[in-house]
């Protein structure tokens, strides 16, 4: 079969044909992979929540709150026991202060507001230095760097260089500061009732009043 000439009609027909077939096949694949992709993302979030919290029976309704010092809201997943009373909550928090910017964490708090676990969801920190934060801050053998079990409401989480009592990751102080910043933001926003003793409802109201001033 001879090659069609490069005239206007042939070129339009050829490109139209190629793009039609391409878009049709992409549509089919999109439909086929839509459910598995949603499931994979859901699984990842559920696994992270399960990993950071003590045992629970089901998750309550997710809600979002705007932190006092950030533009993006953080997501809160309350964990309930069989009698619908709250046993803790997982908080998806973030910081923009990482060595390479944005870091996203899932932090679990138990009923008393102590950290029950955390998981790094997204980061672009230096491999081998800042990227060690997931093992560094949960190292049960090193008391001065382990944050699990601490209650951010009663102890201030700060690296030792800034006058706090948490050892920063060796050669990654900026990452460590950012990491604690994200944890503190999660605590300040989601656990506000544990700090000043006021109910979470009044805190939320107060927060709403403050909002217009910030923006």
């Amino acid at each position: 079969m001879a090659k069609p000439q490069s005239n206007f009609r042939n070129m339009v027909i050829a490109l139209l044909g190629v793009t039609l077939v391409a878009s049709a096949s992409l549509g089919l694949v999109y439909d086929a992979t839509k459910a598995p992709i949603a499931k994979a993302e859901m699984d990842k979030q559920t696994n992270a929540i399960a990993a950071v919290l003590p045992a629970f029976d089901k998750l309550g309704e997710t809600y979002k709150m705007l932190p006092a010092d950030g533009k993006d809201s953080i997501e809160i997943f309350p964990a309930l026991d069989a009698n619908n009373s709250e046993v803790g909550k997982a908080v998806k928090t973030y910081t923009n202060k990482g060595f390479s910017g944005y870091i996203e964490l899932m932090v679990g708090f138990d009923k008393q507001g102590s950290i029950s676990g955390f998981k790094v969801l997204k980061h672009a920190e230096t491999p081998g230095l800042g990227s060690k934060m997931d093992v560094w801050f949960s190292n049960a053998e090193k008391k001065s760097q382990n944050i699990i079990g601490l209650t951010p409401g009663s102890i201030e989480l700060k690296v030792t260089k800034d006058g706090g009592n948490i050892d920063a990751i060796t050669a990654a102080t900026i990452t460590s500061r950012a990491f604690l910043d994200a944890i503190n933001r999660a605590n300040a926003t989601a656990n506000s009732q544990y700090i000043d003793g006021s109910s979470s409802a009044s805190k939320k109201e107060k927060h709403n009043e403050q909002e217009p001033q910030i923006q």
């Binding site: 090659k3 000439q5 490109l15 044909g17 190629v18 391409a22 096949s25 992409l26 992709i37």
Partner: peptide, 25 residues
């Protein structure tokens, strides 16, 4: 043998991009 010479590169790119997107999804 179906693609005119002058538009072969855009046609190839569309074909390649389709398969890349399939792999990605």
């Amino acid at each position: 043998n179906l693609i005119p010479d002058k538009v072969r590169i855009p046609a190839f790119i569309v074909i390649i991009a389709t398969f890349v997107t399939i792999v990605q999804m």
